[in-house]
Structure formats: C-alpha cells, structure tokens
Computed example of a mutant assay.
Amino acid sequence: MSNHIGAPGRGISRREFLAATGGAGVFSLAGCSAPTNSAMEGSATRQVDGSLPSTSPPEVVNVDEQGNSVTLSSVPSKHAVHPLDSMGGPVELPRVWAFKADDGQPSVPGPILRTTEGEDMEITFDNANGQQPHTLHFHGVQKTWENDGVPTTTGIQINPGEQHTYSIPANVPGTHLYHCHYQTHRHIDMGMYGILRVDPKGYEPADKEYFLTLKDWDSRLPRMMNGENVDYSPRDRNPDVFTMNGKSLPRTIHPEEGSPIIVDSGDTVRLHLANSGYMSHPMHLHNHRYRVVAKDGGQIPEAAQHEQDVTNVPPAGRHTIEFEADADPGIYLMHCHKVNHAMNGNFYPGGMVNAIVYRDAMDTDIFAQLMEYAGYEG
C-alpha cells in the first residue's frame, strides 16, 4: 500500500494520516452523498481505453542519491483527472503521454527531479518503445548548446527506437520546468512536462514543503489522439479541464491520488508552484497570508517580499510561496481565482481547487465528507 500522502514533497506519512483521522472508520458516515451533475456538458467524460496503463501521482526522484543519473521515457496512458460522479465527474483524459523515471510508474505531471546546486546530471531519454520523436528541454539551468533540447536549433531529436543522454548541470538553484520541445504545442498538451528542482547549497527545508503543477487542458486533443472523431486545432484551443498535479477537485484532496496541503499548527510551509499550461492562474489561499520568496529560479530579496494572498503564475512561471500555519485549525481552500477554472464542465466547484488541511481537523465529520467526495476509503 502506498505511503504517499498529500502533495509530493516533505509532508506526513500514511501512518500519521490514519492516526490523525482515527482510522478508516471515520469515513463511514451515514447519509453522506456528494453533489452530482450527470449532464456535465463540455467536459471529458468518455470511458477510457482499458488497454492503456493508468497514471500514478508524480514522485520525487532524488537524482543525487542515484549517482546523478536518471532515465526518462514516455508512456501512452489513460489519465483519471477525477474518476467518480461526484462534483461533476467523471473527468477523464483517454490518452496522455506520461513521463516515467527509470522503473517507476508513468505520471502526469512527470516525476519531480530533485538535485543539489553544483551537481552535474546525466538525464537519458529512452524512446525505445516510442511512437513519435521527442526531446527534453530544461528551463533555468545553463547548459551547452547541444543540450538545449530544441530540435530545430540543435539538430538533435530522439526518434522512435533511439535514446539520447543530456548533460544538465545544476548550476542555477531554484524550481524549474522540463518538457518535450518537439512539436511543443502538442506534446506539452499531451502531458510531457515536469519539475526540475535544484536545491541551493546549504538549503534549509521548511517544516512542510510541497510541489504543485498547474495545467489547463483542452480535452479534445487527448480524445483526438485516442482515435475519436474530434475537431481540434491549437489555434482554436478552448480549455475545459483544469488541474493541480494532474487532478481536479474533489480528486485533488484525495490523500494518496491527490495533493492536499497537510500541515500542523505552527508549521512553516513552503509551496513550489509551477505553471505548465498556456494560461495564467491567480492562485489564492484562504485565511493565510504568504510571501513569494522566489520566482523562476531567482530568490527574491527579503526587503522586496511582502505578505499577500494571491499571486498570478504565468505560463512557464514558477513561484515559491511561504507561510506560517497560524490559522484556526481547519480546512481552507487554495484555488485559481479565475472562477471558471474552478469548475468541472458546468459544475461548480471543481477544477483547479485544492485545500490546506490542518491535522487537527482530520477527525471531523466535514473532513470525512470531503474524503467521500474524493473517493478515499481509508
């Protein structure tokens, strides 16, 4: 059984989670039923192709601990954004191109590659079982020309049946992106994106530290790539699915499949927000004031930081925010404030919505009800 609880990063263990909730019995509430909308026009509701593997939540790969090397590959997969009929579901993408690291599971977003400033990484893309060319492009860090990952300017692309190793120095600390740069407008929108995290030398982690990737999707593209007769053009892109770490509310708050921000009172909490979509997302935290301490791999001087409760993360932008868990212990939303991004089709709430969950609130009836909406069975 998975030990992964909450968003990827440094959080709590599954044992701690079960202790805080009083065990699985807390979720057996009589009379709890999630709001539904069987019509849910304009969203991805098609039954997925059972022959494809399902994606898993993104994992953190410590590249330093495995000899400064990692192998990535892309796996055609089905991606359950929210698989239930609660809150406007199901919302499913029938085919994505998920990244996997080494012998791990495919995920959307891809695995978080974590390393330390001053290390040199060897990152191999293995396209042995691929069906189309790919490349890898890394934001932020400075590398040699041939390692830039753009086929039109380097002459290097990884065709089906081939593999290629990129030498990527961890010479710019911060939170960065990586993605395929072959037919970029299509390959990112099919799920080929992830986070590269370079910890500065002497890095001091927060009490709780999590990674969250924002993404807007036009579900017609993965449906078209799955063989449906769908009219799609990137010039006519119309996003209808909005995710955090690949999930939409209520699946975002599922402790193992989603990415709830689990905190204890008094914690210093650090969130690394990365936008791998094509739209900006003003991210708002309820009942907490935070500081943006870094942007796009650059540390913000303390004198320039200020308390705020919304930050607009642009396409390809990365904002690291930090706050104290000093609110009345409870459950508070974190969401995009473009309110139509907080929907599943025509159903509100849904979409790009998550929650800050205090451990002290996990044994309440309202938390149990939210877990039922999310499909968590304990």
Rank of each mutant, 00 (worst) to 15 (best):
I188H: 05
L52Q: 05
E322H: 02
P83G: 15
H306W: 06
S107Y: 10
D218K: 02
T175H: 01
P133Y: 08
M225E: 05
G155L: 04
D207Q: 12
L29N: 03
R114D: 11
E122P: 00
V313M: 02
S73I: 03
A30S: 13
L285D: 07
G25C: 01
Q299W: 02
E209M: 02
R10V: 11
G191V: 06
N340Q: 11
P94C: 02
S51W: 05
W97R: 05
M224D: 14
H319L: 00
Q183A: 14
H176C: 01
T21V: 15
R95F: 08
I188V: 15
V70I: 13
G317E: 05
S43T: 15
G88N: 06
G378K: 10
F99V: 03
H335K: 02
H79R: 07
P239G: 09
L273F: 15
N346S: 11
A34I: 05
S73Q: 11
E322R: 07
S265G: 11
G118R: 01
P329K: 03
V263F: 07
L177D: 01
D64M: 12
G227Q: 09
A39I: 09
T320I: 13
I331D: 02
D49V: 04
L52D: 07
G23A: 13
L52N: 09
P111E: 14
S77I: 09
R251S: 12
D264Y: 14
I188W: 04
Q157V: 06
S2Y: 01
T252M: 07
M190N: 03
H319W: 00
V263W: 02
L52P: 05
P151C: 09
D326C: 08
T116P: 05
F17Q: 04
F242K: 08
N129Y: 12
A327R: 09
A80K: 09
P53H: 04
E322K: 03
D267Y: 03
P260C: 11
S13W: 10
H185W: 13
A128Q: 08
N354L: 08
L72W: 13
A374F: 01
I168E: 04
N159Y: 11
R359T: 15
F211C: 04
C32W: 00
H137Y: 13
Y348C: 03
W97P: 00
I366Q: 12
E65K: 04
P133K: 09
G350K: 05
N238H: 12
Q142V: 15
K143Q: 08
S107P: 08
M334T: 06
R46E: 11
P173E: 10
G22Q: 11
E256W: 00
A327C: 09
S167A: 14
G155C: 05
K100G: 00
A7F: 08
T71P: 07
L52E: 06
P329F: 00
A325L: 02
L196Q: 06
N171V: 10
M283W: 12
I321R: 03
Y290M: 12
D264K: 15
Q299T: 14
G149D: 08
L93R: 00
S13Y: 06
V60I: 14
F242Y: 15
P90A: 09
G351A: 12
Q47S: 06
H79Q: 03
F323Q: 11
I158K: 04
H164N: 15
